[in-house]
Design a protein around this nucleic acid. Structure first.
Lengths: 204, 204
DNA sequence: GTCTATAATTTGATAGAC
DNA sequence: GTCTATCAAATTATAGAC
C-alpha cells in the first residue's frame, strides 16, 4: 500500500482516484436531483460520459457505487459545517441542508432499508458503522451537557442519543410525503425537551 | 354496490372476498417470517396454493398486494389492542409487537420509502392517509394531556405528535441493524420528557 | 376462478477487444 | 481505461383457454 504521496506520483493510479472522485461528484448531483428510484448505473454512466461497463470499472457493483455516494455526502457535510462544534447544531444544519437535496434523502432511505433487510448488502457495514458512531458521539455530547447540569440524571444518554438519530431519520419519511414539514424543528423540540428536564425532579 | 348482507348472499362475490382475506392472512405470515426482500408474488402465490397469475386475479399489482398486507396488519393491531384507550400505550404495544414480526417491519420500511419516492406508487395514498391520521390522533391526545396540565403550554402538539411517529419509524432502522435495541424504550423516553415539561417554566 | 404461456423489458454483471 | 457485445435472469403483467 503506497502513501498518499506515492499515489499522487504514480500517474495512472492517481488518475484512477481522481476519476473516481469525479464520478462521485457527478453522481452526487444527479442523484440529488433525480433521486434514487429508477436511477440505474447506466444513467449515472451517461452523466459522467462513460458506458455502464466503463463506470463499473471503478465500482464493483451498483450497491458499492451508491454506498460510495452516501459516503461522499457525509464527507461533504462534514466539510461544509466543520466550524460547528456542537454536534446537535451540526445535526440540525445537516437536516436543513437535506431538505435541499431530496434525491439524497431518498437514496439514504432506500439504501438503509435495503441494507438492513439484506445481510450481505454492500452498504450494511456503512450503516452499522454510521449508527455506532452517531450513537457514541451523541452520547458523549449528552454526558457533557449533563455534567453542566443541563440534562437530568435519570435520562439515559445512549437512549436519548438513539432518539435524536431516530427522529432525524423518521422525519425524512414525513417530509418526503409532505415537503412542507420542518424536519429540523421536530428534532429541535426533542433537544429542547431533554435540556429542560434538568431543573425538574425525577418522577416517581 | 351491494350491502354487506348482499355480498354474503351472493355466493361468488362473498367467496372472492373470503379468498382475498385468506390470501392476506397467509401473506401476512409469510412476510412476517421471510421479509419483503426477495418475496415475489410467485412466492406468496405458492404459499397460498395459487399460481402467480391466479393470485394477481385478486390484486391488480404487486404494489397493491403489499399495500393490502400492510392494511391487514393495521387491522390486526387495532383488534389486538382494542382495550387500550391511551394512544401512546397503544403505540408502545404495537412497537413491542413489531419486534416479533421483523418481516413486516422490513416491508413497512421498504414500501414506505418506495411509495414516498414514487408519485404514482399504489401505496402512496395509504401512507399519506396513515400519517395524517396518526398526526391528528396524537395531536388530540397531547392537547388532552395539556388540558390536564401535563404538557407545557409552549410545546407544539402537532410537532410533538410528528416526533412520536418519527421516533417510532426511525427506531425500526436501528433495531433492524441491531435487534437488541429496545424500540419502545426510546419512544417511552420521548413521552416521559414531554410529560415532564409541565412543571417547568418555559425557557427565555 | 384458476391455469398455461408468454410478453416485455430492464438492468446488473462479465468477457474480451482495442 | 474504456468500449462492444452479450449474458443471465428474474419478474411483473397480461391474454386467453378451461
Amino acid at each position: 500500500m503506497g502513501s498518499l504521496a506515492d499515489m499522487a506520483q504514480r500517474g495512472s493510479y492517481a488518475k484512477g482516484i481522481a476519476k473516481r472522485e469525479e464520478i462521485l461528484r457527478v453522481a452526487l448531483e444527479v442523484v440529488a436531483r433525480n433521486g434514487f428510484r429508477a436511477t440505474s448505473v447506466k444513467e449515472l454512466a451517461d452523466a459522467v460520459g462513460l458506458t455502464q461497463a466503463g463506470l463499473l470499472h471503478y465500482f464493483d457493483s451498483k450497491e458499492e457505487l451508491f454506498t460510495a455516494i452516501l459516503r461522499a455526502r457525509d464527507d461533504a457535510d462534514s466539510a461544509r459545517y466543520a466550524e460547528l462544534d456542537d454536534i446537535v447544531d451540526l445535526l440540525l444544519e445537516v437536516i436543513r441542508h437535506n431538505a435541499e437535496t431530496p434525491g439524497l434523502v431518498q437514496l439514504f432511505a432506500s439504501l438503509s432499508t435495503a441494507a438492513t433487510s439484506d445481510p450481505g448488502h454492500a452498504a450494511r457495514d456503512y450503516f452499522v458503522e454510521r449508527y455506532a458512531r452517531l450513537r457514541t458521539d451523541f452520547t458523549a455530547a449528552i454526558e457533557r451537557r449533563r455534567a453542566d447540569g443541563q440534562i437530568a440524571p435519570d435520562v439515559d444518554a445512549a437512549t436519548l442519543a438513539g432518539v435524536l438519530v431516530a427522529v432525524s431519520d423518521g422525519m425524512q419519511l414525513q417530509w418526503m410525503l409532505d415537503p412542507g414539514t420542518d424536519m429540523a424543528e421536530h428534532v429541535r423540540l426533542v433537544w429542547q425537551l431533554a435540556l429542560r428536564t434538568a431543573t425538574v425532579a425525577a418522577p416517581a
